[in-house]
Amino acid sequence: MTSLNIIKAVNAGLRRSMENDAKVLVMGEDVGKLGGVFRVTDGLQKDFGEDRVIDTPLAESGIIGTAVGLALRGYRPVCEIQFDGFVFPGYDQIVNQVAKMHFRSGGRLRMPIVIRIPFGGAIGAVEHHSESPEAYFAHTPGLKVVTCSNPLDAYWMIQQAIELDDPVVFFEPKGRYYTKGEVDLDGEPDLPLESARVALPGTDATVVAYGPTVKTCLDAAAAAADDGRSLEVIDLRTLSPLDLRAVYDSVRRTGRLVVVHEAQRTLGIGAEVAARVTEQCFYSLEAPVQRVTGYDTPYPPARVEEEYLPDLDRVLDAVDRTFAY
C-alpha cells in the first residue's frame, strides 16, 4: 500500500499506462517540464521523452483536433485541459468530431482518447477556473464521462479510461486533489470503470454524489450518524453511461434520495438521476427527490463560492426535507 493524493494517483496511473502501451501519449499545455499546473504529469516527460509527453501550442481546439488524427493513426492520446473553463475552445472538436467518429464510420473508426479536466470549485480562483461542465459532455452521445473522488479510484479509473476504445472525458476534482488515500499500485481494480460505488452503506436515506461532493456527503453522513440517522452515500463515478443500479437498490430500501453536485441545478446530472429514480422507484419514494447543487448562476466570485457550493449543512438540510415531507 502506498499513500497518495489524487494528483500522485493519476500520475502513477498515467505512468503505468504509458509503460504498458507505447501508443499512449500525453499532450496539453505545460504538461512537460512543468508537469502541468497541478503537477499531475510531473516527471513523465523526463521519463518518456518529448515525443510521448507533448507541450502543445496554446490552443485547445488544436489539442483535441490533433488527438483525433493521432487516434486515427493508432495512438491513444491523453489530453490535458488546464482548467475546466478552458475546454470550450476545444468543445467543437469534442462534440462534433471525437464523439461522432465511431458512429459516422459505422463502427470502423475508434477514438481511444482521454480528455482529462480538473473541475469544480472551492480553490479561491478567478473566473473560468472553478466550473463544473460535466453535463454538457454527458448530454453528448458517444462520449463517456467519468469522475473520481479519491486516490484509489483515480489510479485505476485513469488506466481503465485509457484502455477503453471509446472517448472518455475524465473529470478530476481539483478541490480534492490533495486528499490522501491508500493505493495498492500492484493490485487489481475492484470495480469496472462504468460502475458506481457504495461509498458508505446506510439505511435511512440515500445520498448520491460524484467527484468533489462525495467527501462533502461522507462528512454529512458522519454528522447525521451522530444524530442517529444512517445515510447511504453512493459515488456515481460514471456520469455517462449512468450506473444507477446501486441507487435504485438503495432508494427501494430508504425511500429517500438527495443528489448533490457543484454544477448548476437546471438540467444537471441530478435532474437525470431524479427522473430515472422516479421512473424506477416511484412506489418506494417517501418524498420528492431533493437536489443540492450550485445555483443557476455563473460560477460566482471566490469570496462567495462557499455559499454557492453544496456543503455539509445544505446536504443535511435536504435530508431533513425528505423526512419532513
Partner: peptide
C-alpha cells in the same frame, strides 16, 4: 467588503 451571497442572483 465581501459581496453578499444573494448578490450572485442579481445580474444573471
Amino acid at each position: 467588503p465581501d459581496p453578499t451571497p444573494t448578490s450572485i442572483f442579481d445580474h444573471v
